[in-house]
Protein backbone atom coordinates (compact mmCIF):
# COMPACT_ATOMS: atom_id res chain seq x y z
CA UNK A 1 0.00 0.00 0.00
CA UNK A 2 2.87 2.31 0.69
CA UNK A 3 3.85 2.16 -2.95
CA UNK A 4 0.68 2.97 -4.77
CA UNK A 5 -0.61 0.96 -7.64
CA UNK A 6 0.74 1.64 -11.09
CA UNK A 7 -1.71 1.68 -13.96
CA UNK A 8 -0.76 -1.68 -15.43
CA UNK A 9 -1.36 -3.58 -12.16
CA UNK A 10 -4.51 -1.60 -11.61
CA UNK A 11 -6.01 -2.63 -14.91
CA UNK A 12 -4.89 -6.19 -14.33
CA UNK A 13 -6.58 -6.31 -10.93
CA UNK A 14 -9.79 -4.79 -12.19
CA UNK A 15 -9.85 -7.25 -15.08
CA UNK A 16 -9.29 -10.15 -12.65
CA UNK A 17 -12.20 -9.00 -10.50
CA UNK A 18 -14.62 -8.74 -13.39
CA UNK A 19 -13.48 -12.11 -14.70
CA UNK A 20 -14.21 -13.65 -11.30
CA UNK A 21 -17.58 -11.92 -11.25
CA UNK A 22 -18.51 -13.35 -14.60
CA UNK A 23 -17.45 -16.84 -13.54
CA UNK A 24 -19.50 -16.61 -10.36
CA UNK A 25 -22.50 -15.33 -12.32
CA UNK A 26 -22.27 -18.14 -14.85
CA UNK A 27 -21.96 -20.75 -12.10
CA UNK A 28 -24.95 -19.30 -10.28
CA UNK A 29 -27.05 -19.41 -13.43
CA UNK A 30 -25.91 -23.01 -13.89
CA UNK A 31 -26.94 -23.88 -10.32
CA UNK A 32 -30.34 -22.26 -10.53
CA UNK A 33 -30.82 -23.88 -13.92
CA UNK A 34 -30.07 -27.30 -12.43
CA UNK A 35 -32.46 -26.78 -9.55
CA UNK A 36 -35.25 -25.54 -11.79
CA UNK A 37 -34.75 -28.25 -14.41
CA UNK A 38 -35.13 -30.83 -11.68
CA UNK A 39 -38.28 -29.12 -10.48
CA UNK A 40 -39.86 -28.82 -13.88
CA UNK A 41 -38.68 -31.95 -15.68
CA UNK A 42 -37.43 -34.64 -13.30
CA UNK A 43 -39.55 -33.95 -10.24
CA UNK A 44 -40.07 -37.58 -9.32
CA UNK A 45 -36.47 -38.60 -9.73
CA UNK A 46 -33.98 -38.49 -6.90
CA UNK A 47 -32.12 -35.21 -6.61
CA UNK A 48 -28.86 -36.63 -5.23
CA UNK A 49 -26.72 -36.31 -8.35
CA UNK A 50 -27.90 -32.78 -9.02
CA UNK A 51 -27.15 -31.93 -5.39
CA UNK A 52 -23.57 -33.09 -5.79
CA UNK A 53 -23.13 -30.85 -8.81
CA UNK A 54 -24.66 -27.91 -7.01
CA UNK A 55 -22.38 -28.38 -4.00
CA UNK A 56 -19.36 -28.52 -6.29
CA UNK A 57 -20.53 -25.39 -8.09
CA UNK A 58 -20.96 -23.60 -4.77
CA UNK A 59 -17.50 -24.61 -3.66
CA UNK A 60 -16.20 -23.16 -6.91
CA UNK A 61 -17.99 -19.89 -6.23
CA UNK A 62 -16.62 -19.89 -2.69
CA UNK A 63 -13.14 -20.37 -4.09
CA UNK A 64 -13.45 -17.34 -6.35
CA UNK A 65 -14.90 -15.18 -3.58
CA UNK A 66 -12.10 -16.10 -1.19
CA UNK A 67 -9.28 -16.08 -3.72
CA UNK A 68 -10.16 -13.01 -5.77
CA UNK A 69 -12.55 -10.83 -3.78
CA UNK A 70 -10.88 -11.44 -0.43
CA UNK A 71 -7.54 -11.37 -2.20
CA UNK A 72 -6.30 -14.46 -0.39
CA UNK A 73 -4.73 -15.89 -3.54
CA UNK A 74 -2.16 -13.11 -3.50
CA UNK A 75 -1.14 -13.46 0.16
CA UNK A 76 1.79 -15.50 1.39
CA UNK A 77 1.40 -19.21 1.01
CA UNK A 78 1.93 -19.88 4.72
CA UNK A 79 -0.87 -17.42 5.52
CA UNK A 80 -3.18 -19.23 3.10
CA UNK A 81 -2.30 -22.54 4.72
CA UNK A 82 -2.86 -21.23 8.24
CA UNK A 83 -6.28 -19.92 7.30
CA UNK A 84 -7.50 -22.86 5.26
CA UNK A 85 -6.07 -25.80 7.16
CA UNK A 86 -8.41 -25.42 10.18
CA UNK A 87 -11.30 -25.99 7.81
CA UNK A 88 -10.51 -29.72 7.92
CA UNK A 89 -12.02 -29.67 11.42
CA UNK A 90 -15.21 -28.40 9.87
CA UNK A 91 -15.06 -31.13 7.26
CA UNK A 92 -14.91 -33.71 10.02
CA UNK A 93 -17.75 -32.02 11.89
CA UNK A 94 -19.83 -32.10 8.72
CA UNK A 95 -19.00 -35.75 8.03
CA UNK A 96 -19.72 -36.82 11.60
CA UNK A 97 -23.03 -35.00 11.84
CA UNK A 98 -24.11 -36.17 8.40
CA UNK A 99 -23.49 -39.75 9.50
CA UNK A 100 -25.46 -39.03 12.65
CA UNK A 101 -28.31 -37.37 10.77
CA UNK A 102 -28.77 -40.30 8.41
CA UNK A 103 -28.46 -42.65 11.40
CA UNK A 104 -31.34 -40.87 13.14
CA UNK A 105 -33.36 -41.29 9.97
CA UNK A 106 -32.59 -45.03 9.99
CA UNK A 107 -33.69 -45.24 13.61
CA UNK A 108 -37.17 -43.88 12.90
CA UNK A 109 -37.69 -45.86 9.72
Amino acid sequence: MSSHLDDATYHKQVAAIWRATIIIAVVTVFEVGLALSHYFFFYHHPKAIINVFMVLATLMKAFYIIAEFMHLKYEYRSFIIILTLPLIFLVWLIIALSVEGTFWLRLIQ
Partner: peptide
Protein backbone atom coordinates in the same frame (compact mmCIF):
# COMPACT_ATOMS: atom_id res chain seq x y z
CA UNK B 1 -16.94 -19.50 9.59
CA UNK B 2 -17.04 -22.03 12.42
CA UNK B 3 -20.14 -20.34 13.85
CA UNK B 4 -21.98 -20.53 10.56
CA UNK B 5 -20.89 -24.09 9.95
CA UNK B 6 -22.26 -24.95 13.38
CA UNK B 7 -25.62 -23.51 12.38
CA UNK B 8 -25.68 -25.01 8.92
CA UNK B 9 -24.68 -28.50 10.02
CA UNK B 10 -27.26 -28.44 12.80
CA UNK B 11 -29.85 -27.65 10.15
CA UNK B 12 -28.33 -30.27 7.86
CA UNK B 13 -28.38 -33.02 10.48
CA UNK B 14 -31.99 -32.30 11.34
CA UNK B 15 -32.99 -32.23 7.69
CA UNK B 16 -31.17 -35.49 7.01
CA UNK B 17 -33.04 -37.19 9.83
CA UNK B 18 -36.38 -36.42 8.17
CA UNK B 19 -38.15 -38.55 5.62
Amino acid sequence: AFTFTGFLIAYGAIRMSKT
